[in-house]
Design a binder for these strands. Structure first.
Lengths: 367, 367
DNA sequence: GGGGCTTGCACAATCGATGGTGCAACTATT
DNA sequence: AATAGTTGCACCATCGATTGTGCAAGCCCC
C-alpha cells in the first residue's frame, strides 16, 4: 500500500516532469493544444498524472474560474418516493453532463430554504434547482443577488421560471377516476367523497380546485366540509382521520389524498383497524408509490413526470432569456395495483452466483 | 430589487469599512478576539457584512484551510425508503454539526463507487461515509491515498471501521417470525419457505446464513433450492417469480425477501394476479417500508436502525485510532401492518388555514 | 524621558489552478 | 545574413480567505 497522506498537486507533477506548473495545468485541463504544448510533453504529463493518481483540486479550480461544477437541488425532503426518485433522476442527469450534483433539503421551512440556498451559494454552485419550496420567491431573491441561475420545480414562484405538474388536470382525472371506480358499485354521493392533506400552496390549491370542479360536475355538489387540508404531516393526518372517525363512526366512501406523506398518516390510522374495515374504501392519491399502489383497497395514484419536468428544467435554466413563467407538465394516472418501472431500472444489476443450485437453467438470473 | 450580480468579498467590506481585508476576515471568522481586533471595529464590520449580505466563499476558505466543511455520503441509490431515510437522517446530523452534507450515489457499481469517491475528494470533503458499497476496500484505498477519514456503513470492508446491521440476528428473528406466523395456520414444511433477492455481498450472506440456521433448527431441513439470490434488480426478481410460478404452478407458502427492491419485483409479479391469489402468503422482508407493511398479506419487516448506525459512525469517524473492525447494530423486527414514525416526523409541519370549514374545533389541526 | 509592555491593526505569503503575456530557440523567406 | 514568423514553453498575477509576523501608537514606570 502506498503511503497515506497528501493529495498530489500540479506542483508535484511539475517537479516530477520538469516542466512548469502552468504547462501541467494546461495539459490536464485540456487546453494544451490551444497553448501550443507539444504532444510529447502532454503525453509525459498525462502519464505522470495517471501514475501519481492526480486529481485536480476543484476548490482551487472553482476559485480561479468562478465556476464550481456543482449543480444544486434544493428539496423539501428525501424520504418519500416522489422526492427520492426526483433526486435519483436529477443526479443521473447532472452526472451525464459531467457535473457534480449536490442535493440539500430544507424541510418546507421558508427560513431553512433561504439558509440552505445561501449555503449552496457559499459553495459556488453554478445552477440551482429549487424544488417544492414553500417560498420560492424568497429563495429567488437570494439567488439573484448572487447572480445564480435558478428555476423552480414542483411549486411555482413569480420571479423565476417554474416547471410544475399540471395539478389541476391531474386532480380532475384523479377525482373522476375515483368517482367512476366507486360508481361501479353504487353511485357516489357528494358527501361521501373527501380530500385530505396538503396545505395552502399552489399544488394543493390546484388539486383542490380540480377536485371541486369535477365533483360539482359529476356529483352535482361540492360541500366545503369535504375539504380537509391537514398539512404535510403524517401524524396530523392520522389525527384528522381519527377525529373524523370519532365523529362520524365511519370513514368517507372515497378519499382523495394530497400526498403520500398524508397517506402515511392514513396508514397510522389503518393500523388500529383490520383490513376488513377498509374493504369498500376507494382512495385517490397524489404522487405515486409502488407499494401504496398495492394496498388492500383500490388506490388510484397520480405519478408526476419527474423525468420530463427535470429535462424541461435543464433546458430552461440554460436559456438566459427564460421568462418567469409557469411551464406545465402532464402527470400520469396510475390505476390500482400497478408497479411502474422507476429510475432504478436504469441501473444494471450485477448478477451473482446463487448460493444454492437454481432448479432450472438461468432461472434465478434470466437475461 | 437590488441589482443582480456579483457576490461580496472581504475586499468589498474592506473598502467599505476602511480596514484591511485581514481584519475583515478575522472579524467574520470569529478569530478577531484572538487577533486583538477592537470590539468597535468588529461591530462595524459585522454590521456591514449583514447589510451587504456577505457570505464567505467556501471554495476560497476551503482552499486556504484545506478543509471544505463538506461531509460526504456515498450511497448505492436514493430511491427506496431505507436509503432515503438514511440520507434524510445523515443530512440532519451533518447540519446539526454545522457542516454541509453532500450525498452521491454510485449504483452499487465498484467502478462508479471509486470514481464518485474521487470526485468527492476532488471537492475536498472532510469525511466520507461509505454506505452499501459493493467494493468498500476499493474506495478505502482511494480515501487513504488522499488522507481522507472514512467509515463503512451497511456493508463492511476489511480496511476501515464498518458499522453494519446485525444481519444474521435480524434474519434469524425474521425467519422465525415468518415460520411462527405460518404455523398458526398449519405447520410449515421446509420446502415451503424460500428466500429471494440479494447477491453475493456480506449482508446477503449473513441473512441467508441466519435463514438457513433457523430453518434447520425449526423445520429440520434447509434445501438449497430455497435460496434464490436474484440480485438487487426489481425486474430480475419479477422474472424469478414468474419462472418459479411457471415451474411450480404456485408460489411458496412463505417468502423471505432480501430487500424492498426485490419486493418491488414481487409487486410486478403480483400485478398479474388478483389479491386473492396471495391470501395465504406470508412474507418477511429486509428493510422497512411503511406502505409495504400494509400489503394485502402479512409482511413482517426488519427495520435497520439508521439513526443508531449513523450516530455510531459519527463517533467512530471522529476517533483517529479506530480500528478496521465491524460494529454491529441491532435491527428491529416490525410486525405486519405497522406504520412507524420516520425522520420526517422530526420536521414540524406548518399548519395552513383549511379551505373548508372544519366540522369540529381544531379537528384538522390538532395540537 | 527612555525602555518595556500592551493595543490594534496592516502587510504579505499562501492554498492550487488558470490564463494572459513574454520570450528564447527554430524555421522560413528574400 | 538579416528579417519575419512559428513553436514551445515559463513567468506571474489572480481568484477570496487565512494567518504568521511586523510595527506604530499609546501607556506605564522608574
Amino acid at each position: 500500500m502506498t503511503r497515506s497522506g497528501k493529495r498530489k498537486t500540479i506542483y508535484d507533477l511539475s517537479a516530477l516532469s520538469g516542466c512548469s506548473p502552468s504547462t501541467v495545468s494546461a495539459v490536464l485541463n485540456g487546453s494544451w493544444r490551444k497553448r501550443r504544448i507539444s504532444e510529447k510533453t502532454a503525453t509525459l504529463v498525462l502519464k505522470l498524472a495517471d501514475s501519481q493518481q492526480y486529481t485536480a483540486n476543484r476548490q482551487a479550480r472553482g476559485l480561479r474560474r468562478s465556476r464550481s461544477g456543482l449543480v444544486g437541488l434544493l428539496l423539501p425532503l428525501y424520504d418519500n418516493r416522489y422526492f427520492s426518485s426526483l433526486a435519483q433522476t436529477f443526479e443521473a442527469m447532472v452526472r451525464a453532463r459531467g457535473e457534480c450534483p449536490i442535493v440539500a433539503s430544507a424541510s418546507r421551512d421558508p427560513r431553512a430554504e433561504r439558509e440552505t440556498a445561501e449555503s449552496l451559494i457559499a459553495y459556488s454552485v453554478d445552477e440551482l434547482f429549487i424544488c417544492g419550496a414553500t417560498d420560492p420567491d424568497g429563495v429567488h431573491e437570494i439567488c439573484e443577488k448572487a447572480g445564480l441561475r435558478h428555476v423552480n420545480i414542483d411549486l411555482p414562484g413569480t420571479r423565476a421560471p417554474s416547471i410544475i405538474s399540471d395539478n389541476y388536470d391531474g386532480a380532475c382525472r384523479l377525482t373522476e377516476a375515483v368517482i367512476r371506480h366507486c360508481a361501479a358499485t353504487e353511485p357516489l354521493r357528494p358527501e361521501e367523497l373527501y380530500i385530505f392533506g396538503g396545505r395552502d400552496d399552489h399544488a394543493s390549491r390546484e388539486r383542490i380546485r380540480g377536485f371541486r370542479a369535477v365533483k360539482r360536475t359529476l356529483l352535482g355538489a361540492d360541500p366545503d366540509v369535504c375539504i380537509q387540508p391537514t398539512g404535510y404531516s403524517a401524524n396530523n393526518t392520522r389525527l384528522a382521520f381519527e377525529a373524523f372517525f370519532a365523529r362520524e363512526g365511519r370513514l368517507p366512501r372515497a378519499i382523495i389524498i394530497n400526498s403520500t406523506i398524508n397517506l402515511e398518516g392514513f396508514l397510522r390510522f389503518m393500523a388500529g383497524f383490520p383490513d376488513a374495515a377498509f374493504k369498500d374504501l376507494v382512495v385517490g392519491c397524489y404522487d405515486y408509490d409502488p407499494f401504496a399502489s398495492f394496498l388492500p383497497f383500490p388506490v388510484i395514484m397520480i405519478r408526476q413526470d419527474v423525468e420530463a419536468m427535470l429535462a424541461r428544467a435543464f433546458e430552461i435554466i440554460a436559456d438566459p432569456a427564460a421568462a418567469a413563467q409557469i411551464h406545465l407538465v402532464a402527470p400520469e394516472l396510475v390505476p390500482p395495483r400497478t408497479a411502474l418501472a422507476g429510475p432504478l431500472d436504469a441501473l444494471k444489476d450485477i448478477p451473482s452466483r446463487p448460493a444454492g443450485r437454481p432448479t432450472g437453467a438461468g432461472v434465478a438470473h434470466p437475461a
